[in-house]
Write a protein that binds this DNA or RNA. Structure first.
Lengths: 315, 315
DNA sequence: TATCCTTACGGAATTCGTAAGCATG
DNA sequence: CATGCTTACGAATTCCGTAAGGATA
């Protein structure tokens, strides 16, 4: 048994059981991969992969059972290097943060600024994507820390911790009729709306609110980020619904924001990381900078916990 | 990084940093071990072992931090083989149970009989030793399951689950004065006692009871097991104090047992296993046979839950 | 027929043990 | 001076990529 074999197995699953693709991903030859897998199967005495003729089609039942252990071993190998790097390079290195647009644009900047000030030697990589993409980047190791409002707590191999809560607000041109009087979903429903795409920045909670009130909304335009939304509201296309953090009185002077925290469900922004993955020391500092209650002492045990069970009662 | 290197590191710690001894343990040459360790250190970039001149004297701080991960990786390698064996050999294989004398002699026999009946293909190895030895056998992998009253819950790398509770009883010849009237510690203290050695079968709780009552006991003879104790009580050497399960009315006809459950603290027998170690399917069946409330569904999650010490704290 | 996996083979790199060297208690 | 680790070196093994072969959608 060696790590090359384990890597081949993991990558084979990731690549949809296409060994040619695995070979490319691992920068080696395809027959090599074929051998690695066969050798491991021979050593263990069980077939890990189901085959249709010569082609691999999926995992066998033993394969499904062994795969998590294989992945943990490779993760631990990575952890070993990370821990060593921490001692070798101290507060120097890189940190990959994946975030949704809203977080990257409105929530992260101050944390990034403060972190840069205290950790000038750390090169920050900021990746942007949908919540699902953020989760995927954590899972495949291309991001250390993920920040999004959802999706991060829907995978057993990720640990999600709440950072802060937020709600949406309504943005309108300064002379809009909605500014006067109480804001209600019913009044809102009367106007064409401009808001987030399905699956972005709490769009779900907007839909939920209208659905629960039995109201239909007319979305005239949807976009992935608040900047685009606000631009179209300025053009008079409709009423905007964006995350409160996305509105700044000075920067967005041509518009007015209306408090809408009673109208829509509260959203929670989560910070997520791969369960069991050791991160560089400064990564935990970054989390703390972003969400001061998430200290390393809080985060580490949560991240390593396997998900507990009840203590059995003796007779 | 390869498993040979990891094994060398683990064994070096186990062998007290004597590489010559490590080489023997791993059936290889000493320069080989020396190289394995140095190569791993070179690859990681940090020294794992502290050295005085050429000799290894202990772990460095990085070494202490990395060691748990190294051990988990090797344990996972072992787990992989175990899981594969389960699919290869089904209900066939060996099972090593380590137990204290009391457990092996009085508590285990019916469980062993029942298990043998349902799993005729499993070769049982029953090891005997002190509670500390049982714990050690679990830790170094020479036993799968440990059964003892203490010591199993004192190590972060072991998981201990309560099986059943028991107390001591007093055994005397059939004409003894203690048979009449209420049994008290004070009356007991008046007689020479025959009981377990220090560290065996709840000897601690006997000492505690007398100490708390402010009474001195005169132990005329102590032994490691109840059979020896009962023999000397038969010879009239003194009054015996043994575990209740160790007395059988018919088998021990020449003696009388007096209920002493109010006199001494209750003891709990524990079943222990290595944290995170995957066992063969039938091993969990054995535990269930011995303690019916400890079903595989209860035991597995408990065993895999993260314990202390597995992961180093940051900062 | 194009894709994908296996087998065969030869060169290269790695691994490992023996023997000798050196520091230390 | 005995113990314990390192260095040096040559043999054996393992590893890996190229090339050819065969099965399947």
């Amino acid at each position: 048994m060696n790590f090359q074999q384990l890597r081949a197995v993991r990558e084979a699953v990731r690549c949809g059981y296409n060994l040619t693709e695995v070979a490319q991903a691992l920068h080696t030859s395809q027959p090599g991969i074929s051998r690695q897998i066969r050798e491991l199967e021979d050593e263990l005495g069980v077939a890990l992969f189901a085959r249709a003729g010569k082609r691999l089609t999926g995992l066998t039942e033993p394969g499904r059972e062994l795969l998590p252990v294989v992945e943990r071993m490779l993760l631990d190998a990575h952890n070993l290097r990370r821990l060593a790097d921490d001692h070798l390079h101290g507060e120097t290195g890189t940190l990959s943060v994946a975030a949704t647009h809203s977080q990257a644009r409105y929530a992260l900047p101050t944390a990034v600024r403060d972190f840069r000030a205290t950790h000038p030697q750390v090169r920050l990589h900021l990746h942007q994507g949908s919540a699902q993409q953020v989760a995927q980047m954590l899972l495949d190791g291309s991001a250390d820390i993920g920040i999004a409002s959802r999706a991060l707590d829907e995978h057993a191999d990720l640990v999600a911790m709440p950072c802060y809560r937020w709600t949406h607000c309504v943005v309108v041109p300064p002379d809009h009729a909605l500014i006067d009087g109480e804001l209600t979903l019913a009044r809102l429903a009367a106007y064409p709306l401009v808001t987030y795409d399905q699956g972005f920045t709490g769009r779900g909670s907007i839909d939920d609110a209208f659905a629960r009130a039995g109201l239909a909304m007319q979305i005239v335009l949807s976009a992935m980020d608040a900047d685009v939304i606000k631009t179209y509201v300025e053009l008079g296309l409709g009423v905007g619904v964006v995350a409160s953090i996305a509105f700044d009185e000075q920067r967005d002077a041509p518009l007015r924001a209306l408090d809408a925290r009673q109208l829509f469900p509260i959203n929670t922004t989560l910070v997520g990381m791969r369960r069991g993955a050791v991160l560089r020391r400064y990564a935990y500092r970054f989390v703390e900078t972003f969400a001061p209650h998430l200290t390393p002492a809080i985060v580490r045990p949560l991240q390593m916990a396997a998900g507990g069970g009840a203590v059995p009662a003796p007779l």
